[in-house]
Design a protein around this nucleic acid. Structure first.
Lengths: 207, 207, 207, 207
DNA sequence: GATGAATGAGGATTCATTCAT
DNA sequence: TATGAATGAATCCTCATTCAT
């Protein structure tokens, strides 16, 4: 069997990640034991440790994959939009229209859980902070762009508003992931969107 | 030797709860071990198990106490306000002006963590749902009252809007508890407030 | 059961140490598993970890106890001897006449094994070096004393000769512990003694 | 694919043995994992298991090779010497003048470690005993030869004295391998030599 | 009621060995 | 023969909970 192709290995890794996502999503990180992933993936314990060094590493790669997916998905689309407003609209649309599978819901929950978890470990904390900066930075850039083109109100503090965006988004995601009310989730997105667009386009003062 | 006064027992219980809050806040629920609470409280392990049946029960009572405190604090004040607008304003003020101690931050984190945790256990889940309903119900009642008195726009769906409120609040709390940026936290509250008041007072259509 | 006396705890610790000595002596450090000690001591795994933090710590304390016993035994006797020659003779006697129980043989083996083991771990290595210095220092002092009183040849390098002593002793101990030939062990001690006394008393040159 | 030349196989085996020696010497037998040898040898795990049945077998063959080397080296030289005294002197010289490389030091350590290890396994124990007998027998023969030619004191028990020799040698080797003090090592050899020659040549009584 | 020693079922991880390719 | 992925028993250690005193 040995000397397998890179794809084979990649596929195995993905199989583990997917299984782990299901388990973590189902039971939470701490409550998931390696044997759960073994059962779910139909691999042996040793095989899992051939691909990952620890349970935490699996968790981490899951999160990183999610982040990577988000950016590659969004960025590819986002270059197609010319105006900042379009880009922003696209971002909202993306959140509102993503299919709300059970998988995704679990993944949302997991993401919050991981954030909480990493807040207690110095090394992970740093990593999550970088991740956070990437998210806010991304939005900030769009807003700045809009301010330069005159689409958005110049007096809005792009940094603050980006952070507010992600806070509200995370609140909505948290509630949806725990309560599972789709309609509520979408409605909340609508309000967040309306409010943001309003806030960015209406001329008003923020120090 | 048995039979000590009720106050004595109450005091012990509180001592345990306070110690547990510090520990859970510091390290998280799963990472906290009973011996941490023993150390923090200067009580014996046996003593703790005399007052609580399990680690989970301590966690639970902590949350319930927090909820109770919130309602007793808010409700006492809230009866003093005559108009729904005043009541709402008071609610915002309360969130914005509560002192942001480190203790409170930990407690915020803990609350989110617990919610996540309880989402996997049928019995706790139910309990958290009731708690959630109490929160949304509370706000819903204020809004309805305002709609009846004509203060608020009648077409707003009080149920939806209450849930949105708590989602946004929880997002803000989550971010603050993890990032610790006070100014951002307050600024976000301002925006949430502005938006809500606007949304409730401006006549507009929501289906 | 709790709130037990210090003696109780001391006794338990000793029970564990004795059981561990038997196990380590029988199978070696690495090959001994905690469950062996559990079986041997009739204690639970948890109980053992109440008294020691790790398998290595048990090993270490065993060795330290052995060293302590040696010095307290030897030093108490050694103050009774007035001349350096007497002290030296006593040391030899002590090695030659100690009862060669199976227990002791295992303990000898264990001691060599531990030395080997610790040579790979920086922290333990240092500890073993200190221990070694204590042994050579002890003998060196006796020799120096004898040189000052004129009992021993002044030209002998007390440091070198002490180290040689311990090397030869360890060789003899190693062979005895592995081969178990008592007569050979004693005969070798006689030769070591004869040689040392000769070497220390006959005037001859060493640079 | 099978059927490669004997030399090819021999070479592979040696490569494995050499790599294993480095690893075992560095980390000890138990602490060395097969992957260490894989890394060191640049062979695959499967290849190693094609030549050896187990980790223990590698260890064993290493020791056997070392013994074989010792005897072939010493015996070839030793036939050149005519008198027993010369042979003995040659033996001492050989120990004193062998280059003290780091490699050799590790190998010394390994040899003691292996002896300790094998003392717990019936099959290996027997093997080590045979090995031991070979060593003592070798020396015993020289002494007997010297006694027959009148070079050595007839009353010395050649068996005992040979064993003493190896015990002292092993003590010196053990200390050197762990402490790494070259000068001390050589000085000790000098003393052992002086003593032995003295003891074999001076007429004296041993029962 | 209080104490803290004892229990032992887990749980993460390792690693010698196998075996399909 | 060579490869290295797969296996899973083995091992150390943890920690919630119990219970004798």
């Amino acid at each position: 069997m040995p000397k397998v192709s890179e794809e084979y290995k990649e596929e195995k890794k993905n199989r583990i990640l997917e299984s782990a996502l299901r388990c973590f999503g189902e039971k939470g990180y701490e409550a998931t034991i390696i044997d759960d992933i073994v059962r779910e993936s139909n691999l042996s314990k040793g095989a899992i440790y051939n691909y990952f060094n620890s349970k935490e590493e699996i968790y981490l790669q899951l999160l990183q994959g999610r982040t990577k997916d988000f950016f590659s998905e969004v960025e590819s689309e986002y270059h197609k939009r010319s105006s900042a407003t379009d880009k922003l609209r696209f971002l909202f649309e993306r959140f509102q229209n993503q299919p709300l599978t059970d998988e995704r819901r679990k993944s949302m929950r997991l993401y919050t859980e991981f954030w909480l978890y990493s807040a207690r470990q110095e090394d992970l904390k740093k990593l999550m902070e970088e991740r956070y900066l990437r998210f806010t930075g991304f939005l900030k850039d769009i807003i700045k762009e809009g301010q330069e083109t005159g689409e958005f109100n110049e007096q809005v503090d792009s940094g603050f508003i980006s952070q507010i965006f992600w806070a509200l988004r995370d609140g909505n995601v948290l509630h949806y992931s725990l309560l599972g009310e789709e309609e509520q989730y979408k409605k909340t997105w609508e309000m967040i969107e309306e409010f943001f667009i309003g806030c960015l386009t209406t001329p008003k003062n923020r120090e």
